Simulated scan of single mutants.
Amino acid sequence: MVRMLPKSRVLAFLALGVGCVLLGAGLLLPRLVDAERPLPLDLSQTSLSVTDPAATIGKAFLAGAAEDDPDTITGPVSRNLSVSVGAPVDEDATAVTVGVSTLRDDMAESLGDQAALLEAEVWSMRVDRNDGSVAGDVKVADTLGTPAGDAEIDGQWLAFPRDTAQETYQFFDRLLRRSLPADFDRVEEIDGREVYVFRQTLSAEPVLTANPRYAWLTQTVTTPAETDDEGVETAPATSTVSTLHRSGTREITVEPTSGMIVSVREDTRDYYAAADGAETGLLLDLHGETSEEERDALLDQAVEVGEDRPVSMWSLALTVIGAIVTVAAGFVALRPQRRQ
């Protein structure tokens, strides 16, 4: 005759199995789940703007400017960077599209963005969701009616690494198409939150080096012929071709836990220079920064992204509960049965 186990002992064996599962899950959780959150795919804040209410705009950027028009005008200009995060390419990287545009804000209000557009580019790339670096091939469409061309991004651009350090990083400049050092400058506090400010210095950097396709790369200055009082030419007309250069500074404000950029200040001068370095004309003189409203929204998002998953807490809770259930159930299940 087969003796049946009492119901209490059957339940104890089931509880013993559950306890072992909980104990194993608690011990393995830190190895299976990374506490650091990767870049989310559904960011609510995906754009950053730098606005100068009184930028100096050169004639090369003024469509339809006549010969006798002034060489420069003053007006509000904003440079906008908009990020679209696509589907993950693999466990670590995701596809990203970045639109960069420079607008005359006064014309945008009255005539629309299309009429106010000074320049625009669309970048396509893969971004590492853990450290913000660009991984894989990069394409950029910068000329209307032509296919996107190849490009390289060898430093930080859209974000800094998580747990950003107080050190120098290579930061990408879109116009120069190369990265230059951005040195840690200082710690600031915004609404009780600590942020790091990095400073990048640009000194007569030539655009021609890595961006030879730029639409406003060169400027030709023609000097008319000289004549004497009788109209006889004493010196022929000359033409000087100058190329675009960039000088100035850029300050990048970063929320260090997430590595996300929350604000940028640019004091840059894009000008034409002859072979001897002498300035011959201006494209754009910009002294702008991200608005406080946009900065605060980006900072709130960065703080949320920077929060680690509570892996340690859940691991400890599962391990403790699993151990208690296993010991208690094991005691009940394995104790000797009393004879009837």
Rank of each mutant, 00 (worst) to 15 (best):
A225K: 12
E266Y: 04
L283G: 08
A278H: 05
M4I: 07
L144C: 00
E119D: 13
A65W: 07
Y196D: 07
L175C: 01
G136C: 01
E293P: 06
D92V: 10
A329Y: 02
T164F: 10
E251M: 11
S101Q: 06
V332F: 14
A225W: 02
V122G: 07
T102M: 09
V140K: 09
G277D: 11
E152S: 14
T257N: 12
S291V: 07
P206M: 07
H287S: 13
V98I: 14
D69H: 03
S133H: 09
V77P: 03
P38S: 01
A273Y: 09
A274V: 10
R269H: 14
T223G: 01
V85N: 08
L16Q: 04
R178T: 12
L27G: 06
Q166C: 01
V221T: 15
R199V: 03
D34M: 02
L244V: 06
T326H: 06
T243P: 01
R9D: 08
T51P: 12
K59S: 13
T56G: 00
F61Q: 14
M107Y: 11
K59D: 09
L62A: 01
P76F: 03
R162G: 06
L48Y: 06
A65E: 03
S124V: 07
L202I: 12
Q337W: 11
V18K: 00
Q45H: 09
T243Q: 12
E205A: 15
A15H: 01
R162C: 00
V85Q: 07
A273K: 09
A302H: 04
M1N: 02
A182I: 09
R79Q: 10
A25Y: 02
A108S: 15
L118E: 03
A275N: 08
T257C: 04
E91G: 07
M107P: 05
D300S: 08
V33L: 11
S101E: 08
E121S: 11
E289H: 03
E293M: 02
T319R: 13
V77H: 09
R265G: 03
T51K: 14
S312K: 14
Q301K: 11
L244M: 12
D105S: 09
D191H: 09
L118P: 10
G330Y: 08
Y272S: 01
R104E: 11
V122W: 02
D150M: 03
E233T: 15
A93I: 10
A25K: 02
I321S: 14
A237P: 09
R186Q: 11
T168P: 05
V33G: 00
Q45S: 07
P38F: 01
P147S: 05
L111M: 13
